[in-house]
């Protein structure tokens, strides 16, 4: 098992290099760099000053040299300095945002799991019943709902009309003056809408997936055997069928990381949440090359880790995979 994990870890290195190379080329091939962004509106800037600025950022070198330098720094986990005013380390800027984005995503995955699994199982067991039909239509509708629109509707309902929930940020302005219990509720109430919205998109897909896994498993011979030996239906469904139907689910959870990260740009900008998505959006808008590169590579790295955890989890759960 350890050897398997080690091999998978080694395999991520060339993938990461490929990803960073593509990102680098795409970013640097685009017209208009940070120097132009900073100086275009200022007629007093001389050509010489621009050159100096370009040299300061290291942008005067040919692209392949810049990439080699960047890669060299990456080897020591140095993401470089942000081009923005504050000039802070990129790793620091990203590091303080990741917990926010990650915790919202983990919470929403949990929510997806808790809702989608029972929903999928029940639909599969009662295939073609009214419940199954209604949930199928609901699932398709869920696929089609743009998450940012859902966010707007919920904000209008719970934030504006009813006034029950806050609609932006992670904590209220008066957070520091609140008592301990009020602090917990303050945080929770700020998280309710973002977590629900980010979970909603996945809910439809996962419950559909669970349903079809379940339908697949129920047709297997060992289920017929379990029924034939007189086990109660509950046991057949939850012991024999569900455990096997959950297996492919592990893989999909791992594969959903890039989608969740991409989605974080949208819901973080709607709910004004200071996470990785918002940071990336700001970085893109100000052409902060080191920050963009850092965020893309970290995003890809998280994706690869997600894939790996999924594969390892699958191997742990399913002995048939391990022997291969």
């Amino acid at each position: 098992m350890l050897r398997y994990i080690a091999r998978r870890l080694l395999l991520t290195v060339p993938l990461l290099i490929g990803i960073s190379l593509i990102s680098f080329l795409v970013i640097h091939a685009a017209p208009g760099g940070p120097v132009e962004m900073a100086t275009d509106l200022n007629p007093k800037v001389t050509a010489e000053a621009r050159e100096r600025l370009r040299a300061y950022y290291g942008l005067d070198q040919p692209v392949h040299v810049q990439y080699a330098q960047w890669l060299g720094r990456m080897a020591t986990l140095d993401f470089g300095q942000s081009f923005s005013r504050d000039g802070r380390q990129v790793s620091e800027k990203i590091g303080e945002r990741i917990p926010v984005t990650l915790s919202i995503n983990v919470l929403s995955m949990l929510l997806i799991f808790l809702v989608a699994v029972p929903l999928g199982i029940y639909s599969a067991v009662r295939k073609d019943s009214w419940f199954d039909r209604i949930s199928t239509v609901a699932v398709f509708t869920g696929f089609a709902v743009p998450t940012f629109w859902l966010a707007l509707l919920l904000m209008i309902l719970f934030g504006v009309k009813l006034g029950w929930l806050p609609i932006s940020g992670l904590v209220s302005l008066e957070y520091d003056s609140l008592g301990p219990a009020a602090k917990v509720w303050d945080r929770t109430s700020h998280l309710l809408l973002p977590v629900f919205v980010s979970a909603f998109g996945g809910l439809a897909g996962f419950s559909r997936y669970m349903r079809s896994n379940m339908l697949e498993v129920i047709r297997q011979d060992y289920i017929a055997t379990a029924r034939a030996k007189g086990l109660p239906e509950r046991k057949v469904v939850f012991r024999h069928a569900m455990r096997n139907a959950l297996l492919p689910f592990i893989t999909i959870l791992g594969l959903s990381v890039p989608g969740l990260l991409g989605g974080s740009v949208i819901f973080e900008s709607i709910f004004a949440i200071p996470g990785l998505g918002q940071l990336f959006y700001q970085g893109v808008m100000s052409r902060d090359y080191p920050l963009i590169m850092g965020a893309l590579v970290i995003g890809a790295f998280l994706t690869l880790i997600g894939n790996m955890l999924a594969d390892v989890g699958y191997a742990l759960a399913d002995p048939r995979i391990r022997t291969e």
């Binding site: 490929g18 890039p258 991409g262 893109v284 893309l296 690869l304």
Partner: peptide, 23 residues
């Protein structure tokens, strides 16, 4: 297929965002 794997690892919305903002 390795190239496909690499492309699948990008949080594609991040990449789309970056490219559109630049171009």
């Amino acid at each position: 297929m390795r190239f496909v794997d690499i492309m699948l690892c990008f949080p594609s919305f991040f990449l789309i965002l970056a490219v559109i903002a630049f171009l």
